[in-house]
Nucleic acid binder design. Structure first.
Length: 260
DNA sequence: TAGGCCATCTGGTCCT
DNA sequence: AGGACCAGATGGCCTA
């Protein structure tokens, strides 16, 4: 079925910009007319003006519904589904807002799949950073008590590199991947064969570009992808300073991402 | 022009 | 029975 009613606002993925959800208002204007035109001939020929039993108080089974009632029902269902998807998109926008990713009119929005993958990456990074912070605190206060308390808290986490910023490297890679790559930015970093596959500076990353695809492929599978369009996020370390050979932490985070 | 992403419709399934 | 959720199908828009 033609769904050109949606094409009028298909690109404004922000739910707030979409017309109201009141019972398929924008849908009915176009879609419903087409729908009615298609069925008018049959409706008029097959049956007279069907009475709506809504006031009768007796429920009809679906087979008993007239075509108009079926249409109304269909419109209601469509409207609900539309609203549901809008709510989902709203939640997705909320997730995008808290992601360490450049926001702005010149930066294209993360795709849904990219948002989810980056969110997962971000959570893993934060978890790892938290563990290392715990370790640092334990080291500062010294003593075996702190160590004991730490091991009890998270036995599955292997000891990581001494500095927190090193563990952020995987996220930095993902961030670079997300924003794309430019030759100029790559000049002062080790060039990689895969850089040719990097997206344009302002184009969103494909899902497969995030280095998160299928569990088998690791977080660090993708080499560095840097871009001049990269922006330094408040509260986030500069990825460029992190784009250095990653010591032992690599295996730690790698295994962390693989286990999920 | 192909491919990616998206919104919408639609029918089926599950839950309350 | 009605609503929520899900997945497939369809078509539009955009970019490389």
């Amino acid at each position: 079925m033609d769904s050109d009613a949606g094409s009028t606002c298909s690109r404004s993925s922000s739910p707030d910009l979409v017309v109201d959800d009141s019972a398929g208002s924008f849908f009915s204007n176009k879609m419903f007319q087409t729908y009615c035109q298609e069925n008018r001939a049959n409706s008029e020929a097959g049956q007279g003006r069907t009475e709506c039993c809504s006031g009768s108080g007796k429920a009809k089974t679906r087979s008993e519904l007239s075509k108009e009632e079926m249409q109304d029902l269909r419109l209601k269902v469509n409207s609900r589904e539309r609203k549901r998807m809008h709510d989902l998109n709203q939640a997705m926008d909320g997730l995008r807002e808290v992601m360490p990713y450049a926001h702005g009119p010149s930066v294209r929005k993360l795709s849904k799949i990219s948002t989810l993958l980056l969110a997962r990456n971000y959570i893993l990074m934060l978890s790892s950073s938290l563990e290392e912070m715990k370790k640092l605190v334990g080291d500062v206060y010294g003593g075996s008590a702190a160590v004991q308390g730490r091991t009890g808290a998270h036995p599955s986490i292997t000891p990581a590199a001494p500095t927190t910023h090193l563990s952020l490297h995987p996220l930095a890679q993902s961030l670079h991947s997300l924003v794309g790559s430019t030759p100029s930015a790559l000049q002062h970093h080790a060039p990689s064969p895969a850089s040719a596959a990097a997206p344009a500076p302002h184009s969103p990353p494909s899902a497969s570009f995030l280095g998160f695809h299928p569990p088998v492929q690791g977080l660090l599978k993708d080499p560095l992808h840097l871009t001049s369009s990269y922006r330094h996020f408040p509260g986030m370390p500069c990825p460029c300073s992190l784009c250095q050979p990653l010591p032992t932490t690599t295996s730690t985070l790698h295994s962390l991402s693989m286990n999920k």
